[in-house]
Simulated scan of single mutants.
Amino acid sequence: MTNLVLRVLVAAGMLLHMSAFAAAEYKIVTASSRGTYIKIGQDLAQFAAPAADVKLEVLPSAGSAENVRRLRYDAGVKLALVQSDVYQAFLDIAAGGNAEARDMIRPLRVVMPLYNEEIYFIVRADSELNYIHDIKNARISAGESGSGTALTSATLYRLMFGEPMPQANASFASNEQALIKLVTDKTVDVVAVVAGQPAKLLVDMKPESRKLIKLLKFDRDHPSSAAVLKTYFPSDVLARNYPNLLATDIAGLAVKAFLVTYDFRLKETEGHLRNLTRSLCQNFATLQEKGHPKWREVQMALPNLGRGWFYYPPSAQEIRACMAGPAKAALPVPSKPAKECPQQEQILGLCKPG
């Protein structure tokens, strides 16, 4: 009996020892399976997570707005990729008195800024539209409902024209569904796509696609551009990335992508995320060499963030230790009077029109 008890205790001890060193199983939410975000997530899972003793599951999603919700509320989701304008929209809406937005965004933290993600507006090849500022009153497929693309489309439209996108002209579908409508039944005039170049959706297009579609250009000298460039960034869409679609580079727009987490305080979770950030830094050269080309645009640094944005302290400490980049605390967002349900909040699912 004594020997049996000893064997049981030894076996139990071995199991406890093994469980203590078992890899943490975390999830990262990205975007479409044909977008850039999911490849960035896969790169993190392949080149950074193993050395941090993390098994990182990469999940597709509708995009940034959904990612904010899932990071906040879904079990196991520890990381998300989020567009800067979507994150800022949640902050602005929260500052305006929306309690749901405040509860969602307040505990989220930035791990690090990543890269600029291009914004494409696609029309039929024979369309009279040539520039992004030509889309006023066009029938626009703005992206999937609840996605970062939809929020970007609505924000850009408002900045350019000083008014919301007309509800009667706006539709919300996946990129693939929208492109089919664009070139077949022609119930859509413009398809909005947000994806870092080279975007798989456009890379996979055949040479015959030039006869069907074209990309709209961004005119940096147009009167509407000044307002747009306060939120977004100029970015050239390169012909070498899309040889089947473009003959020359064209001027475009981009939005910043961020790696985001929750303000986790549990020591075990904090430790794994700290290790993951350290591994990301240590394997940064590998990510740039073997990962998606967008990694070559990423800088291992902690630039100042906007008002209401905060870095995750454990990750920030690791990045400082690795690259000696300073991180400065952001100021709190001042409270503003509550407002009704405009288009941005509808897209983010924070309210419904009356």
Rank of each mutant, 00 (worst) to 15 (best):
V123E: 10
K290C: 01
Q344S: 08
V203T: 12
S171L: 07
K200A: 14
R320Y: 13
Y242D: 08
L159P: 03
K267P: 06
L245S: 04
A324V: 03
D249I: 09
L202Y: 07
D103A: 14
D263W: 01
E270T: 15
H222G: 05
M323R: 11
R124K: 14
V333F: 08
A138P: 01
K39W: 05
K339D: 12
A80G: 07
T155K: 06
S224M: 08
E318I: 04
F264Y: 12
T155H: 06
K256I: 05
L246S: 10
A101N: 11
Q88G: 01
Q42N: 12
L246N: 13
A49P: 04
L302Y: 06
A170W: 04
Q177W: 03
G325I: 06
F90A: 03
N3K: 11
S279R: 03
P334I: 11
Q299D: 07
S171T: 13
K27S: 13
L229N: 03
R220D: 13
L56Q: 07
L56D: 10
A324D: 12
V58I: 00
M160D: 02
Q343R: 12
G97D: 02
V8Y: 11
P164Y: 08
F233N: 09
A12V: 11
T36D: 15
I180S: 12
S33I: 14
F172A: 00
F90H: 03
A321M: 06
A49T: 08
Q288A: 04
P234I: 05
F310K: 03
I180Y: 12
A89G: 09
L81H: 06
